[in-house]
């Protein structure tokens, strides 16, 4: 479903973040992206949802070359990809429910569909009871659940997560991983950059290691492979 060919990315300041990445990710896969800090993991991930555009190379997402996508077509791509961040990126003035609904409102879903989908997805992440609370009334783990709920509410084909457990304690991290497992079990592809060795070594999935902007290892069911 996602295929990269010789993806090279040089930032405006001259830093080469990815130096020829080749990879193929199938529908329904769960992929960990690991590697040392500054290796290019976030850059790799950002190019998939077109936050960054590769300097050269091809990124094919379901037959579309994202690298050549017109600015006008980006919104359509983004609707097919859910994104989760380390820092949640919730709107503090909106309730849990509103934060999730926001993602549908801005793509002009009907109110009826919004109600249905938001209720459903809040149940999935286990936040039905906290729907009326505000982000600052929630724990970090709960906030991350809200952000995950928002990322999947439009039923994307892929969920991309950049260190989703980076700000959470180990206990909470496991809960969050459980949510991702659930989403993956429904057939959604998951691509997750992480430094969480415990998680990678326990819940085994495909592991792609990036170092110095290139893929140095790509192993199904592999381990984290670095000391922390």
């Amino acid at each position: 479903m996602i295929k990269m060919k010789n993806v090279y990315k040089k930032y405006a300041n001259g830093v080469v973040a990815t130096n020829g990445i080749n990879i193929e990710i199938d529908r329904g896969e769960f992929v960990y992206v690991v590697g040392p800090s500054g290796a290019g993991k976030s850059t790799f991930i950002k190019m998939i949802y077109r936050e960054e555009v590769p300097t050269s190379g091809e990124i094919i997402f379901d037959k579309i070359n994202i690298a050549q996508l017109k600015q006008k077509e980006v919104p359509q791509l983004r609707r097919r990809i859910g994104v989760v961040f380390q820092d949640f990126k919730l709107l503090p003035k909106l309730t849990v429910y509103e934060n999730v609904a926001f993602a549908l409102e801005v793509i002009e879903e009907t109110p009826e569909n919004i109600r249905k989908k938001v209720t459903e997805v809040l149940a999935l992440v286990g936040l039905t009871k906290k729907a009326r609370m505000f982000p600052n009334e929630l724990s970090g783990g709960e906030q991350q659940r809200v952000s995950i709920a928002r990322s999947i509410v439009n039923q994307p084909e892929v969920v991309i997560a950049d260190e989703p457990t980076g700000n959470l304690d180990p206990e909470t991290s496991w809960d969050i991983m459980e949510v991702f497992e659930k989403i993956n079990a429904r057939g959604t592809t998951i691509i997750m950059a992480t430094h969480n060795k415990e998680v990678v070594n326990t819940i085994r999935h495909r592991v792609v290691a990036i170092e110095g902007g290139i893929i140095t290892r790509d192993e199904i069911g592999g381990d984290y492979g670095y000391e922390q």
């Binding site: 791509l77 983004r78 994104v83 993602a103 801005v106």
Partner: peptide
């Protein structure tokens, strides 16, 4: 930022 992330059209933004 979130609007754009979840695929709001440019005009909507």
């Amino acid at each position: 930022e979130i609007m754009k992330l979840v695929g709001a059209t440019n005009n909507f933004v």
